Simulated assay, not measured.
Amino acid sequence: MAQSLLLHHFPLDPASRQARLALGEKKLSFEERPVRYWEFDEVFHALSPTGRTPVLEIGKGEGRILACELLAVLDWIETQAPKPALLSTDPAERAEAMRLRTWFDRKFEVEVDAPILYERMEKRLQRLGPPEAEPLRQGRTALKDNLTYMEGLLTRRDWLAGTTMSQADLAAAAHLSVLDYFGEIAWRSFPHLKTWYMRLKSRPSFRSLLADRLPGMAPVEHYADLDF
Rank of each mutant, 00 (worst) to 15 (best):
E132Y: 06
L125C: 09
S16L: 01
V43H: 13
R199C: 06
K123R: 09
L226A: 11
V43S: 13
E57R: 14
H45Y: 12
H45P: 05
L12G: 13
S48D: 11
I185F: 06
P49C: 06
M121Q: 15
Q18W: 12
A46S: 14
L86I: 04
Q80L: 01
R36S: 11
L87G: 03
E111S: 08
M217V: 09
M217F: 04
R106D: 14
E42T: 11
G152H: 07
N146C: 13
S16K: 11
P84A: 00
P219D: 07
R101D: 15
K201P: 12
G51V: 08
L71C: 03
G216D: 03
E221I: 08
A81T: 13
W187Y: 02
M121T: 09
D90F: 00
F104L: 07
R52C: 04
E119N: 07
G63Q: 07
R127T: 04
H8T: 12
D13S: 15
D13Y: 05
L47A: 12
A46L: 06
G24C: 01
E42V: 11
L193C: 05
A97P: 04
W187H: 04
T164L: 00
I77L: 03
A72M: 05
A114Y: 07
A92L: 08
P219W: 02
R199S: 12
I58S: 05
L5G: 09
R203T: 05
R188I: 00
V110A: 09
K201Q: 11
R157G: 05
S177P: 08
A161S: 14
E151Q: 10
G24A: 03
A224H: 10
L200V: 13
T102N: 10
L23V: 02
I58E: 10
L193A: 07
L128R: 15
A224W: 02
P130T: 03
T141V: 13
F104N: 08
Q167S: 13
P84T: 00
L147C: 01
I116V: 10
D13E: 13
V220N: 07
L136Y: 10
V220P: 13
G216T: 04
A168W: 08
L154P: 05
L56Y: 03
F104W: 07
P11N: 00
T102K: 10
L47V: 10
G51M: 10
R199F: 09
P131A: 03
A81W: 02
F44P: 05
Q167H: 14
P34Y: 10
I185N: 01
N146W: 11
Q18H: 14
S189D: 15
A174S: 15
K201E: 01
H8D: 09
A224I: 03
Q167T: 14
G216P: 06
P191A: 03
H192E: 09
T163Q: 12
A46E: 06
A95C: 07
E42M: 06
L143P: 00
V220C: 14
L193Y: 02
H192A: 09
M98A: 14
G216S: 08
